[in-house]
Design a binder for these strands. Structure first.
Lengths: 115, 115
DNA sequence: AATTATATATAGACAGACTATATATGTCAA
DNA sequence: TTGACATATATAGTCTGTCTATATATAATT
């Protein structure tokens, strides 16, 4: 079953920032890591990621620095700033609230998020 | 806390169709019902709903019929078609898969959806 | 008489993710 | 040695979904 593209909207910034919480990463690595951590559910495209990263950098949520790789092109590492950390927390809470509300509509029951 | 608009993307069709599973409804009623069932989290705008409904009708997922109200303007009721039912099931499964994958990335653990 | 709630509808703006394309290097197989 | 593939970043243009703003119309309330 193909993942409905419409559903993916909006939460990519959250996911990418979440990855950076565990340590600095370069773009290509994030694509791989996201695939791995989601059990092959998310296939973020390079053409989606790089503009997203530039946007986050422009807002001051991440900072970037170049670093030589042992082989191949130099890598551009991204680091989650202090502001980025606080924005990430807000985004996580926002996601929980949203997912919880969807569950309420779909399952008709209550939903305490934290679960 | 304002609900991050970016997160809302894509799942409105799912939610609206889910409402129709319980019986035919008219547009204005859906806005109210969605607000109620989500504990005041979703505030779907009329300008978002009606184009969405027309789209679903065009795809054959819902059918529509006019009905006089006891007072005021006549209401346009929407009905979930057989095809709509099957699309709804796919969309629900797709949502579960997606929400589950997000949880994996955020909480770092496993996730059996059905929970 | 004016405002608010009910009820539907469209045009235009905007944001997020996509595809397609471009660049550049290293490895591996034919 | 040539081509294919994986690594790595980047931008232009497109598409889709939701938004705001606006329009129409009727009934109830103030």
């Amino acid at each position: 079953m193909e993942l409905d593209k419409g559903l993916v909207s909006g939460s990519m910034a959250l996911l990418v920032m979440k990855l950076l919480e565990d340590g600095d990463m370069y773009g290509y690595q994030m694509v791989e890591e996201l695939k791995k951590r989601s059990d092959d559910t998310f296939h973020l495209k390079a053409g989606s990621l790089y503009p997203l990263l530039h946007g986050l950098e422009g807002k001051g949520y991440v900072s970037a620095y170049e670093k030589e790789a042992t082989a191949g092109k130099p890598r551009r590492y991204y680091h989650l700033t202090k502001q980025g950390h606080s924005v990430l927390q807000e985004k996580e809470e926002s996601w929980n609230l949203y997912a919880c509300a969807v569950r309420k509509v779909l399952k008709g029951g209550v939903c305490s998020y934290g679960t």
